[in-house]
Computed example of a mutant assay.
Amino acid sequence: MRRGFFAESSLARLSREFGMFGPLHGSPDPWLTAQLDQHAAAVRDSISAEGARVSHRSLARYLHGFMDGCRERGWCSGSDTYDWETLRVLSVCRLAKEYGFVR
């Protein structure tokens, strides 16, 4: 197992669960790629604004805080559309894959 890979981390579980949406594997439509790029940039900016670098820990911390906020607002991922929250979670999962934190 590579260094930094956490098989049962929240990032790994969420990446598996959200993998059903498709854009984490293969080539998504250009509009979706652009949306995920924008969300990923916002996530990186948010992490660096706190004085941290993107790491497994900082990304997991961001994800936990984001999901807590979603739950407080009553958001549910049961939809088959790409709403704002789904795009943000997918971008976190994509960052986790790009940085090698999940497969």
Rank of each mutant, 00 (worst) to 15 (best):
M1D: 11
R2N: 13
R2K: 15
R2H: 13
R2C: 09
R2M: 14
R3I: 10
R3T: 13
G4W: 04
G4A: 14
G4L: 14
F6A: 15
A7W: 13
E8M: 15
E8K: 15
S9Y: 11
L11T: 04
L11E: 03
L11P: 00
R13W: 12
R13M: 11
R13V: 13
L14D: 10
L14H: 05
L14E: 09
S15A: 15
E17C: 07
G19P: 05
F21M: 08
P23F: 08
L24H: 03
P28M: 08
P28Q: 04
P30Y: 05
P30F: 09
W31E: 12
W31M: 09
L32S: 02
L32W: 08
T33P: 00
T33H: 04
T33F: 07
A34D: 14
Q35Y: 05
L36Q: 03
Q38V: 12
Q38Y: 06
Q38M: 11
Q38S: 11
A40P: 04
A40I: 10
A41W: 01
A42M: 07
V43W: 03
V43F: 04
R44G: 01
R44S: 04
D45K: 08
D45R: 12
S46R: 04
S46V: 00
S46L: 08
I47G: 02
S48L: 08
S48G: 02
A49M: 10
E50Y: 06
E50P: 02
E50H: 13
G51Q: 08
G51A: 14
G51D: 12
G51L: 14
A52H: 15
A52D: 12
A52Q: 14
A52P: 01
R53D: 15
V54H: 06
S55E: 15
R57N: 13
R57K: 14
S58L: 10
A60W: 05
A60T: 15
L63F: 08
G65R: 10
M67Y: 02
M67P: 00
D68P: 00
D68F: 07
C70Q: 08
C70M: 09
R71P: 01
R71I: 10
E72M: 06
R73E: 07
G74F: 05
G74I: 07
S77D: 07
S77E: 05
S77T: 00
G78Y: 01
G78E: 03
G78K: 01
S79P: 01
D80P: 01
T81N: 04
Y82P: 01
Y82H: 11
D83H: 03
W84K: 06
W84E: 10
E85V: 05
E85C: 06
E85R: 06
T86Y: 01
T86I: 09
T86M: 14
T86H: 02
T86A: 12
L87F: 05
R88W: 03
V89I: 12
L90A: 01
L90K: 00
L90C: 03
L90H: 00
S91D: 01
V92D: 00
C93I: 07
C93R: 02
R94L: 13
L95D: 00
K97V: 12
K97Y: 04
K97C: 09
K97N: 02
Y99S: 02
Y99D: 04
V102D: 05
V102F: 09
R103T: 09
R103Y: 11
